[in-house]
């Protein structure tokens, strides 16, 4: 096996995991640009999406469903949980200050993790592979079909979201209130409705991300925390609040991280994310696509 084919394999699996980071980064960016809060418990929403859908895939909660309906139920559970966190924690604490939002979300994170331990136990559960896992050789390069499916589904979800935001009236209303909240309100946009919709869509995306990544790792109560910190880096890389930037940031981070893991050690993989974060904050705090202070990219 030549070095080139190894590198291509690393890039393909990096793109797959990177697209999942991208989905969660989109969720962060949507919430930040729309409502100006940050959901630090996004990782736990992802975990709930994955765990609930696993319950239906394995048939532990009554019905044994095929993957797609189970995934939809998981994404819905994630969306409901996101809305609950927003209404019960983020909205009341926003008035007291950003510090309290973080405190509340982090407390929520602890609460959800420990509740998940009570319900599902602390040990990891394998998620049955939906797509073929055996590598397929394409011209000497071994590619896992699952990676391709993950990449396609994430990109498709991001694409559908983009169409929704640009082509529908509701989507345009959401973009308008993210650009200028008060003027959008004067134009008759109902903030309560757009805020709720933003949270629901973002949390459902996080849920989908969790379900996509579950077969690659185990489903554990703490699975969300590390993925979420990577997603933050991806969002910052693309410019916090920039939705197309988020998916590019995610893909880039996934590939760089995977290459670092392949070339150096697996510890280097985690360190890369932090190093990128610090560098981007020092030299390009507005993200890769930032045109400079005061200008919109």
């Amino acid at each position: 096996m030549s070095i080139v084919s190894v590198i291509i394999q690393l890039i393909v699996s990096g793109l797959a995991i990177g697209s999942v980071y991208g989905l969660i980064a989109i969720a962060h960016s949507m919430i930040w640009s729309g409502i100006r809060v940050v959901n630090f418990a996004q990782g736990e929403i992802l975990m709930i999406g994955a765990s609930v859908s696993l319950m239906y895939v394995t048939g532990e909660w009554g019905a044994r469903l095929p993957f797609i309906p189970a995934a939809i139920i998981g994404a819905m559970a994630a969306a409901i949980m996101g809305l609950l966190i927003y209404l019960l924690v983020m909205r009341p604490t926003t008035k007291s200050g950003f510090l309290y939002v973080i405190g509340g979300c982090v407390g929520m994170q602890m609460l959800l993790q420990n509740t998940a331990i009570l319900i599902w136990g602390a040990t990891g559960r394998p998620y049955p592979a939906i797509f073929p896992m055996e590598p397929v050789s394409i011209g000497g390069v071994f590619i896992v079909p699952q990676d391709i499916f993950i990449l396609l589904i994430s990109l498709a979800s991001a694409g559908i979201l983009w169409l929704f935001l640009t082509r529908t009236k509701t989507g345009t209303a959401m973009r308008a209130s993210s650009q200028n909240r008060s003027v959008a309100g004067l134009m008759g946009i109902n903030h309560v409705r757009t805020d709720a919709l933003t949270i629901i869509i973002a949390s459902a995306l996080a849920g989908i991300a969790g379900i996509l990544i579950a077969p690659k790792f185990f489903v554990t109560p703490t699975m969300g925390a590390s993925i979420n910190s990577k997603a933050f880096t991806a969002a910052v890389l693309g410019g916090f609040g920039n939705i197309p930037g988020a998916i590019v940031g995610g893909l880039l981070l996934g590939v760089v991280e995977n290459l670092a893991g392949g070339v150096f050690t697996s510890q280097a993989k985690d360190a890369v994310s932090f190093i990128i974060l610090i560098l981007i904050m020092m030299f390009k705090p507005g993200g890769l696509f930032d045109a400079g202070p005061g200008r919109k990219a």
Binding site: I102, T233, D270, A271, S273, F274, L277, I278, M281
Partner: peptide, 29 residues
Amino acid sequence: YPALKVRGGVYLVLITTSFASIIQTILTQ
């Protein structure tokens, strides 16, 4: 010093958490 350059609380959260993670990684490695 890097905390000076960033605008907004989100970035500060990220920069300080990654600092703590880097320290922990160094101690382990």
